[in-house]
Each structure stands twice: as structure tokens, then as C-alpha cells.
């Protein structure tokens, strides 16, 4: 970065010709010129806000009033805030349960789709639909499905004589947790399944044939051929999945808004609640910043997943 800027200065200072044409003659100058639009956007609306967010976490800024530096006070306050810790617990529970379920069901669906099926492309297209439709709008459908009085699930179970009265899906803390996780898994399965399917299709059939000739059962072929070759892509897909689940906001906001009694508040929804309707921008920013260590962990995990993949493929670049 700094070399390109120096380069630009040097080129601009050297002659009277228009900077643009001088710039486009050197490799670095042209690179800078081409990077400029993207860099401006990302620096102004991504890097700067990221820094600003960290700074806001150290201030008592609220809506309509610029704050002053108060050090770690927000974090001390959060440290003793049971609702914050509940949201951390909820986020970890939500992320871990939903990710494990998405992985198992997604892998299962990918393996099914990898078989010889009629209308395979049609199935693939249909299965991706939950992921394509706006989350808020599909979450509204779930809200109606989870209605406390007229839930279709309750009705079917009552018709079958399995339960006596409607299940209070979103009113009871544990039911609410299970319901939002179910809705999240529903939306996440297609992403995991289609990405893993793409990975499965890169595994050469000849390896399976060789293993089968050596007498491997279908379980052994899955365990010792498919799974090891799929591991790198599983690492990347699951990192993305964990990242998106951990920072989820929309689903909770539509279904429960964090209720009942904060049982489904995630860190993202709590951060929103404190910052925007509550007006405490500083405190909200502090909660958002508290998510960063977890995200860094996931990103490092992804990085090493990618590295291992490169190494396995024997690629130099």
C-alpha cells in the first residue's frame, strides 16, 4: 500500500504530464488506479466503521449526543450484566446446536443428491429455495407456523392425538430456543448441502471403485475415502455457516425479538436493542465488539482449513 502511494507521488512530481496517463504506465500505478473505487468504498464504509465501532465501545455515546471517552466502563457494566451473559450463552447454544444439525442434515442431503437420481437438477434447484428467499419473509412464514393458537404443527399433532392442547412455541423459553434453532437449520441446510455436493462431485469415481474392489463396505468407503477428501471443504463451509449463525439477527428479530424473558436474545439482537431503540450507542457497540474474538477464532479456523486444502492439492500458489 505505502509503496504504491510513494510511487504515485514520485510519478506526479516528476513531470507535468497528466497524472492519469503517467499512472497507467507503471504496473503499480495502474494497479492503484484500478483498486481505487473498491478501496474507497471499503475504507469509508468498512474499515473506518470497524475502527469507529471499537472506539464507540469506549465512549458513552447515545443517540443525539456525542459521548466522551469512559475507558472500559461499558465492558465493566456488561461484565456484571446477567442479560449480557445470558445472550452470550444463547449465542453459543444457538450456534453450536444449529451448526451441528446443519452439518449432519446437510451432509446427508448432499450424499443423497450425489446418487444417480432422475430430475437431479430440478431437486437441486428446489432445495436451494429456502436460502434464496429473503430471511425475514420466510421467518414470517415460520412465525405463522409457530403461532400459539393456530399453529399448523400443533393442529396436526392434535389431530393425531399426540398432544392435548396447542404447543406454546414462542412463549416458553426452551420451546422458543428450539423453534428459532429449527427455523435457522431449515434455512441453513440448503447452503451446506449444495456446497458439500459440489465438493462430493470433485471426488473421482475411480477412488470409490478401487476401494470397492479392495472390499470396502459402503460405510468404509464413506469413512475412509469420501470424508477425508471432503474435510477441507467441510472446514470452509462450516466456518461460513458458524460465522453467519453466530452473527444472526433477522430470524430472532422477526420471531421473538429476544423474548420470552430474554431467553432467545443473541449478542447481535441485544446489541441492536440497546443501541437503536434503547439509544445507548456506546453500550451496543461494546456488545458488538465482544463478538469479534469469536469471529476471529472462526476466521483463523477457516484460514488453516484453506491452507490445508492448498497443501493437499499440491498447488504452489
Amino acid at each position: 500500500m505505502s509503496t504504491t502511494i510513494e510511487n504515485r507521488r514520485r510519478v506526479a512530481a516528476r513531470s507535468g504530464t497528466p497524472i492519469l496517463s503517467r499512472l497507467s504506465e507503471s504496473r503499480n500505478g495502474l494497479g492503484l488506479l484500478f483498486m481505487l473505487p473498491a478501496a474507497v468504498f471499503l475504507l469509508c464504509f468498512l474499515t473506518y466503521p470497524l475502527g469507529l465501532g471499537i472506539w464507540l465501545g469506549f465512549t458513552d455515546t447515545s443517540i443525539g449526543r456525542s459521548g466522551i471517552f469512559i475507558g472500559l466502563e461499558n465492558y465493566e457494566w456488561l461484565w456484571h450484566d446477567s442479560v449480557f451473559w445470558l445472550s452470550v450463552f444463547n449465542t453459543l447454544l444457538y450456534t453450536s446446536v444449529a451448526s451441528v444439525l446443519k452439518f449432519i442434515l446437510g451432509l446427508w442431503l448432499a450424499l443423497i443428491l450425489n446418487e444417480h437420481l432422475p430430475f437431479k437438477n430440478l431437486f437441486r434447484a428446489i432445495i436451494l429455495l429456502p436460502w434464496v428467499v429473503p430471511t425475514v419473509l420466510s421467518a414470517l412464514a415460520f412465525w405463522w407456523i409457530f403461532d400459539s393458537q393456530f399453529s399448523i404443527i400443533s393442529w396436526v399433532l392434535m389431530e393425531w392425538g399426540l398432544i392435548e392442547r396447542p404447543i406454546n412455541f414462542l412463549g416458553d423459553p426452551n420451546n422458543a430456543r428450539a423453534s428459532v434453532i429449527a427455523a435457522n437449520v431449515w434455512r441453513g441446510i440448503p447452503f451446506v448441502a449444495i456446497c458439500l455436493l459440489a465438493g462430493l462431485q470433485t471426488i473421482p469415481q475411480s477412488l470409490h471403485e478401487a476401494a470397492a474392489l479392495d472390499g470396502a463396505s459402503s460405510w468404509q468407503r464413506f469413512r475412509y475415502v469420501t470424508l477425508p477428501l471432503l474435510t477441507p471443504i467441510i472446514a470452509v463451509v462450516m466456518t461460513f455457516s458458524v460465522l453467519f449463525t453466530f452473527t444472526d439477527f433477522q430470524l430472532i428479530y422477526v420471531l421473538t425479538r429476544g423474548g420470552p424473558v430474554n431467553a432467545t436474545h443473541l449478542m447481535a439482537t441485544l446489541s441492536f436493542q440497546r443501541a437503536i431503540p434503547g439509544g445507548q450507542l456506546g453500550e451496543g457497540a461494546a456488545i458488538a465488539v465482544a463478538m469479534i474474538p469469536f469471529l476471529l477464532g472462526a476466521i483463523l479456523f477457516s484460514f488453516f482449513g484453506l491452507q490445508r486444502r492448498k497443501w493437499q492439492q499440491g498447488s504452489a500458489d
Binding site: M1, M35, A38, L42, F45, L46, Y48, P49, L50, L52, G53, L56, T61, L243, F244, T247, D248, F249, A268, S271, F272, A275, I276, L281, G284, A285, A288, V289, M291, I292, L295, A298, I299, S302
Partner: peptide, 24 residues
Amino acid sequence: VTGMMIFLAYLVPPSILFIPLAFI
């Protein structure tokens, strides 16, 4: 390095950016 930074930028979620962005 720029390519790597772009990838990292992709991983920054909107739910930690919306408060400072609202400010801006």
C-alpha cells in the same frame, strides 16, 4: 495481500458494523 484483505472484508458481518455505520 490485498486479495487476502478482500477475503477478510467478506467475513466482517453487518451485525457488528450497523451501529458505527448508523452514526456515520
